[in-house]
C-alpha cells in the first residue's frame, strides 16, 4: 500500500485537490472564516502525510505539477488588470502612494518588532520580504543573506492570513472602497491574498494583482536600505 503511495505521480495532486474540494464543501456548510478551503486542505494534507509516514519530498514529487502553473497564472493576472485600465489610470496617484506607504509600513513594523523580540541581523532580514510574492521574496532573502526557507514560510503564513482574513480585516478597519481594499490586500499579502480578492470582486482582484507586482519591486529597493537597521 505504502509502496504505491511512495511511487505514485498522482497521489500528491489528488490529495491536494481532494482536500481542497472537501474544504470548499465544509465552507459552504458552515460559513466561518477559519474554515478557509486552503487552510483546511493544508491541514488535512499535512495530517495525512504524517499519519502515512510519507516524506514531503515524495508528496511534492507529484504536487509540484500544481505549483508549476503558478508562473503562467501570475502572468494571467495582467488580464483583469487590463480590464480595469480606466480605473487604474484615473487613480494612479492614490494607488502608487498607497502601495509605497504599505511597503514602508511593512519595513518599519518589522524593524520595531524585531527590536522588541531581540532578533539578530539574519533573523531580521529573513522576515523583511514577508509581504511580497514568494518568487521575489526568495531572491531578496538570498540577496540579504537571510534563511531562505524561513522567508518562504513567513511569506506563505502571511499569504494565508490574507487569504483567510484579508477581506474581514478590511471590513473591520472600514476600508470599503474597492480600489483601496484591493491595493491593501495585494500589498500586504501578495498573490495568496489576491486569489481571495478575485473572489471578492473584479476591481479588488485587479488592483490586488497590480500591487503584488509594484509592492514586490518597491520592497526590493526598500529592503536594501532597511537591512542595515539591525
Amino acid at each position: 500500500m505504502n509502496g504505491i503511495l511512495h511511487n505514485s505521480l498522482f497521489f500528491g495532486v489528488a490529495l491536494s485537490i481532494g482536500t481542497f474540494i472537501l474544504g470548499t464543501m465544509i465552507k459552504r456548510k458552515c460559513n466561518i472564516f477559519l474554515f478557509n478551503p486552503l487552510l483546511v486542505s493544508i491541514t488535512i494534507t499535512i495530517a495525512t502525510l504524517s499519519l502515512l509516514h510519507i516524506e514531503y519530498s515524495t508528496y511534492n514529487e507529484s504536487a509540484k505539477y500544481l505549483t508549476y502553473l503558478l508562473t503562467p497564472a501570475t502572468v494571467a493576472l495582467a488580464i483583469p488588470l487590463y480590464e480595469q485600465l480606466m480605473l487604474l489610470k484615473k487613480n494612479v496617484t492614490a494607488i502608487l502612494i498607497g502601495i509605497a506607504s504599505g511597503v514602508l509600513c511593512s519595513g518599519v513594523s518589522i524593524f520595531i518588532m524585531a527590536l522588541m523580540f531581540g532578533l539578530d541581523h539574519t533573523q531580521y532580514v529573513t522576515l523583511l520580504p514577508k509581504s511580497i510574492t514568494t518568487a521575489i521574496g526568495i531572491g531578496l532573502s538570498a540577496e540579504l543573506d537571510g534563511y531562505v526557507a524561513i522567508t518562504v514560510s513567513a511569506i506563505i503564513f502571511t499569504g494565508l492570513i490574507g487569504n483567510i482574513a484579508g477581506d474581514l480585516i478590511c471590513r473591520m478597519l472600514h476600508i470599503n472602497n474597492p480600489i483601496a481594499k484591493g491595493i491593501a490586500i495585494g500589498t500586504a499579502t501578495h498573490v495568496m491574498g489576491t486569489s481571495k480578492a478575485m473572489e471578492v470582486g473584479e476591481v479588488e482582484g485587479a488592483m490586488s494583482s497590480l500591487s503584488v507586482a509594484v509592492a514586490g519591486c518597491m520592497t526590493v529597493g526598500a529592503a536594501i536600505l532597511f537591512q542595515w537597521w539591525i
Binding site: A94, I99, C105, A154, T158, I179, A184, A188, T189
Partner: peptide, 22 residues
Amino acid sequence: AIIVISVISTVAVIAATGHITQ
C-alpha cells in the same frame, strides 16, 4: 516572533495602505 510579527505587520500594512489609498 515569526507569528506575532507576521500577524501584526500584516494588519498594519493593510491599515496603512488601505486608508491612505482611500
